[in-house]
Amino acid sequence: MSGADPIRLYRTVRLIRRFEERAIELVRSGHIVGGIHPYLGQEGIAAGVCAALRPDDVVAGTHRGHGHVLAKGADPARMMAELCGRVTGLNRGRGGSMHAADFAVGVLGANAIVGAGGAIVTGAVWARRRRGEDLVGVSFLGDGAVNEGMLLEAFNLAALWRVPVLFVCENNGYATTMPVADAVAGSIPARAEAFGIRASTVDGQDPAAVHARTAAALARMRADGAPEFLEARTFRFDAHHTFEHAVRLDYRSPAEVARGRSRDPVRIAGSRLSAGDRAAVDADVEAVLEAAVAQALAAAEPDPATALEYLYASGLTARTGGG
């Protein structure tokens, strides 16, 4: 199995890192309304997993989903425009941070309902394989999702019907403020193992380790069609959601945050590049994001008269609110 290109991995974690930092600035300046769930600190997981995927493989993300969308190959400019609610956004300004989707690159959508993505991606992969396509899927989920019954039902269906979905649990230790130790009876991988799903744990801060483990899992899955489960241990560097920048919630000590931040996926991936390569990637990422922000802010906002556009694929038009 060939390892992932270290430059590519570094570029992806760096892109997500800087994308999130720029997005937080736009939240502060009021250009992104509603805030975001920053992926800061967890970039190595999306980068490592998606580097092992083929373009036609599909992923379903979470409320903390920017990293998944970017790592799968969506255009950062259209993603930024989406966060800013512009017509040029991936979802034409109809989805925003928590619903960003790009079907053209296999992103079936971030999903704001915890635990919801697993069954959806299982159905999508099953239906396309029935047509003879040789694809796999990834369902990203948080540690909070493993307590959702719907997700456990999805484990059962994927295992029973041999649908090759890799369930990637991004265990950042907390569901909002709820520590895993207070929320999860038994162990997280054991949830999947109970359904006969192969499960393991990896260091989510090291994108190369995540990539290697994912590539091995996908090779087995492509061979035998069975789903797998990967717990990636990680740490959320920033707020659960940017609202926390204004409202301090007391659940992680400064010491714990400092310890968590000491293992930085961007630094870990960057240390594998020469200083020159790193500088070149950094400059490229800055240029991409500079253009992305400029394009997003220059783009038009949707016309309020089109607020219900796309509600029905059948062409049905809804009655308006009257007056």
């Binding site: 079907f103 079936l108 919801a116 697993g118 069954a119 959806i120 991606v121 299982t122 159905g123 999508a124 992969v125 099953w126 239906a127 019954g149 719907m150 039902e153 999805a154 059962n156 269906l157 029973l160």
Partner: peptide
Amino acid sequence: PLSEQAFTSFATGAAL
């Protein structure tokens, strides 16, 4: 199996 929530969303995924 008796998994209404999962098979309903499985159908959504297939339909997508």
